[in-house]
Design a protein around this nucleic acid. Structure first.
Lengths: 153, 153
DNA sequence: TTTTTAAAAGGAAATGATTTCTGTTTACAT
DNA sequence: ATGTAAACAGAAATCATTTCCTTTTAAAAA
């Protein structure tokens, strides 16, 4: 639970507006991903007037500043989640039921090292998405082939 | 350069139609990513009538079958590329110039093992996207912060 | 080879997430 | 307190992707 005074908004030349802070607080409370639209719905409970563009604008600004992160979902929508109070982790997406699970493990240190060496540039971050069948879907027996998306073999 | 007879379409219950084959050949010739719309434009040079929905439908089917892969770009559009004649690799995206570079290295064996163990499910594939500054952008000195998107710290 | 039928394709129209635009309000530096 | 650049609302535009329905076609069966 953050006190808004601790968000480094000033460093990013972003003003500390009530809506911006509310968005940050919402994200900080979420334990999982949340879409811009869901954020908007929750925001409407706190303010009489809020526009969806405000949500998008803020999310992009905050993501640009690295305060929050943008997670790319293989389906249409993009989900955002909050960073500071969570450990770095990866995402497992079940190709059958589409649910996203967090994997509290990274193991990308070597990969990052190799990549920066080969590219000759600087690695800042990475996105890892592991696709497969979750425990319950793999128990049900299907192979998930028919619902595969975003799979790289 | 593939002979279309070698595409395992039959295994996927997909018919060998002229347009499907043309799409596969286009992708096979591409050395980089290509959007559905770009594929459509090229296809229109070969057929008097082609619909964009046909392109999307085929891409989804082929991706579902694992013949091609879907690459998620941090911006709006989704890009697709062809698999069979290329080795598995990762993508490095420069946060400054947005260019995508292939990294001919995987190193995800341990990560996959760990993930499947922790999830208790079956890992089928993974998507790795490494964000950073490419050689030339990092030489130019910027830190890329202002263009950050989709970055997970 | 002809027949049959399920898949594929065309094309128009719908969808729906994201963005743009314009006028108004507000945070905060001076 | 006041001026100014940033934020905001709300309506409308954009544009990639899907849906729907009808026609065509690949390829299995006869």
């Amino acid at each position: 639970m953050h006190d808004h005074g601790t968000y480094p908004l000033k460093d990013l030349n972003l003003k500390t507006t009530p809506k911006r802070v509310a968005i940050l607080n919402l994200l900080a409370q979420e334990s999982t991903y949340i879409s811009p639209e869901e954020i908007w719905r929750k925001l409407k409970g706190q303010f009489s007037r809020v526009g969806l563009p405000t949500v998008y604008r803020n999310l992009e600004e905050l993501a640009a500043g690295g305060i929050i992160s943008k997670v790319i979902h293989p389906n249409r929508q993009l989900y955002y989640y909050f960073c500071p109070n969570r450990d770095h982790h990866h995402h497992f997406i079940c190709v059958a039921c589409r649910r996203v699970e967090d994997v509290d493990y990274c193991g990308m240190e070597d990969v990052e090292r190799q990549v920066s060496e080969r590219i000759g540039g600087r690695v800042l971050s990475h996105i890892v998405q592991v696709n497969g069948l979750c425990r319950s879907c793999s128990a049900k027996g299907g192979n998930g082939e028919s619902t595969h998306v975003g799979v790289m073999k």
